[in-house]
């Protein structure tokens, strides 16, 4: 007897066979003629400057944290939504209180300005001479 996840596993296996087949055929047919310039990093035809793996803006980290908190909220919402009609008004009010608490945090983050992103500030040169 095949479980439902077993079927997905077979699906995945057949997919792997298909993709691996494609890659293998490509590996057999395609040319292999490398030289150092061809293997250099693309930077609009110039020689690449420096390393590209750098530290990025902390802002990204804050967004990821907010995402984690709200994603956990969504995880709580799913089982609640499935049995919602059996539980009735009591569970509904309960869940709305839970969401309201999270919305307070959401409002805090909004007011603090963590949802704002740097807007481009164009420096338009003035044509009129003083």
């Amino acid at each position: 007897m095949l479980t439902e996840f077993g079927r997905i596993f077979i699906f995945l296996l057949i997919g792997v066979v298909f993709v691996a087949g494609g890659l293998a055929v490509a590996w057999l047919i395609r040319p292999h003629r490398w030289y150092p310039e061809k293997l250099s990093t693309y930077e609009c035809g110039e020689s690449p400057v420096g390393n590209a793996i750098v530290k990025f803006n902390i802002r990204f980290y804050v967004v990821a944290l907010i995402f984690l908190i709200f994603d956990v909220e969504v995880v709580f919402l799913f089982p609640w939504a499935v049995v919602f009609q059996k539980l009735g008004m009591y569970a509904f009010v309960e869940m709305m209180i839970f969401i309201a608490i999270l919305l307070v945090g959401y409002a805090y983050v909004w007011v603090k300005g963590d949802l704002e992103w740097d807007k481009p500030v164009p420096q338009i040169p003035k044509l009129v001479k003083e």
């Binding site: 490509a26 047919i29 395609r30 003629r33 150092p36």
Partner: peptide, 22 residues
């Protein structure tokens, strides 16, 4: 696409570079 040469830059992380499209 099958006939095209596969280029992995020398600076790239070879394993992750192969894994990502999969």
């Amino acid at each position: 696409l099958i006939m095209k040469e596969d280029i992995v830059p020398t600076k790239a992380n070879r394993f992750l570079h192969d894994l990502a499209p999969l």
